[in-house]
């Protein structure tokens, strides 16, 4: 690493273009909506930046506050589900035979290379009332009632299973949003967990087993505490995009599955209240920064004992 003064020409050559881009096409647009968030609508598309806090005050009205808490709750829940699934998956891949390992890892990464919209669309096709999950359930229903018929308990079968198959409403509700968020973000969780567990010396696990701990005790007392920085990373990395997700609640959710991003979109696309939309955007951003700060804070507390 050298001081920029030692070769100023090279420094300016690599500094100017990206910095210009970041300022012109990122920071200025963001500053613009930041300014808008303190503004008022004066016409159909005219906005006067008056320094008012009304937009932020409005965001704390119960209707919106409820959407915020609900978004946080759904994001937290789906992140935790990702963790519960991701930990055993990452652990298994870390200790897979060397030949199988890159392939298993590829299987985890591959969905990243598939368009998010296509994946969400694929999920719709599977989950809708005339979709494959319901198809599978109907088949199970048919088999079960047929079994009841055979043993001569058709009446009992109908009583237990119902007269005819009723498709389960999986799509267009909060459950579908949860499934969709886990589906989309699971790889975000598995990769940092994999990286953390891969770094973990396997003799810690073996020492624990050797000292008389079973697999479960080893998992809770050794693997989880030692992988904690990776777990925190995974939680935050998954939580941030989940909290700000737009497409999943929009396409899979029902009328009561609105998340923050959906109301922001509404302000800009249909309600045409840009100042309020801008204020909501910045509230979402502050939440994101809060999550990042939490990660930095937790990371600092942990690292000292672990770098040994």
């Amino acid at each position: 690493m050298e001081s920029w003064r030692s070769t100023p020409r090279v420094f300016w050559a690599v500094f100017s273009a990206p910095s210009f881009w970041l300022v012109a096409f990122f920071l200025i647009p963001l500053s613009l909506i930041w300014a808008y968030s303190f503004g008022e609508k004066t016409g159909i598309i005219d906005i006067a930046v008056t320094g008012t806090l009304d937009n932020y005050i409005r965001a704390f009205e119960p209707v919106y506050l409820q959407i915020f808490t609900k978004s946080l709750w759904i994001a937290t829940l789906s992140t935790l589900i990702c963790l519960a699934v991701g930990l055993p998956v990452a652990l298994t891949i870390v200790y897979a035979p060397p030949k199988a390992k890159p392939w298993l890892l590829l299987l985890v990464i591959l969905p990243f290379w598939t368009n998010l919209l296509i994946r969400t669309y694929a999920l719709i096709a599977v989950l809708r009332t005339r979709g494959y999950v319901n198809f599978g359930l109907e088949w199970l229903y048919d088999q079960a009632s047929w079994l009841f018929q055979i043993v001569g308990l058709g009446g009992l079968g109908a009583a237990i299973l119902g007269e005819r198959f009723e498709p389960v409403e999986i799509l267009y509700n909060n459950g579908a949003v949860l499934i969709g968020l886990v589906y989309v973000h699971l790889p975000f969780m598995v990769l940092p967990l994999y990286a953390a567990l891969e770094r973990l010396d396997r003799s810690y696990l073996e020492a624990s087993l050797d000292l008389g701990a079973g697999q479960f005790q080893t998992f809770w007392r050794v693997i989880v505490p030692l992988a904690m920085p990776g777990i925190v990373s995974g939680l935050i990395i998954t939580f941030i995009p989940t909290l700000g997700s737009f497409l999943t609640p929009d396409l899979l959710g029902g009328p009561d599955s609105t998340m923050i991003a959906n109301i922001i979109e509404r302000q800009f696309k249909s309600a045409n209240d840009w100042p309020f939309g801008s204020a909501l955007s910045f509230m979402l951003m502050y939440l994101t920064f809060g999550a990042l700060a939490l990660r930095a804070f937790l990371g600092r507390g942990r690292s000292s004992g672990l770098e040994a």
Binding site: D201, A207, S208, P225, L226
Partner: peptide
Amino acid sequence: VFQSYAVFPH
């Protein structure tokens, strides 16, 4: 006794 000792750091 492991080569790396595997003394639990936490």
